[in-house]
Amino acid sequence: MKVAGIIDENPSISDALIHILRGEYRYDPGFKEPFKIPASWLAIQLFITFSIGKYSTDEMSGIGQQLLIRSSKKRKWFFGKIAYCFSVVLSYYLIIIAVILFGTLLGLTRCDISLTGIVSYNLNEINYESQVLIDSKSLLMYVIVLPVFTSFVISVCQTLLTIIFRPIVGFISIICYQVLSAYFSFPFLIGSYSMLLRSNICTYNGFLFSDAIITELIVLFVVILILVIKLRKIDYLPRS
């Protein structure tokens, strides 16, 4: 029996964090259970996608253009866009943590970073039987580090599509990619790596932290390689 993300009456900070970022278990089309869209997870990903939006192409005109022609190398400008992606992603996750901490000040959540036992058991189809709690180190890796890195890699992919094609192409492609990541389980659909419930600490045959990081590093390397190669021949023209 599993009832994902149930929070007791007085949740800790970690309980609340998991409730927002847990995602959904892997969907198996073979079973007759309907596909459940991980709404809060998808909402966060969409907010990030909106924020990345057309920033990189906006930077091809106006003050961005002034800075670009003075930067002397296109790579410098490009790595500035990558840094922007990282800052946007980090900001979103920090906002989520800040909101939870604000909830603590209001007395909505307990000022405690450990995971409540019942939440840990309910999240966990493996440990439910063995009654083993998810430790705080795993929690940090799977609920903070991995989602931040996953969202960053996806935002760099969006930047690639936006620069090479146009913002709308990047935007729609990333939304489709995220929905596919929620529906299918395939290593290069990296969106699912930001869902705790699909990890090996919550489900049988779930992904390993190391596998997720390696896959994402491969994707990041390929995307940056394409961008660096393409960068020389890209036209820096306003695109709408």
Binding site: S61, G62, Q65, Q66, L68, I69, S72, K73, R232, K233
Partner: peptide, 21 residues
């Protein structure tokens, strides 16, 4: 241009409308 250098080394430009911050 585009091979040895990305942009002219000392350039100032106003292209179309000036859009600063």
């Amino acid at each position: 241009l585009g091979e040895d250098i990305s942009f002219p080394e000392r350039v100032g430009a106003l292209i179309e409308s000036p859009a600063l911050l």
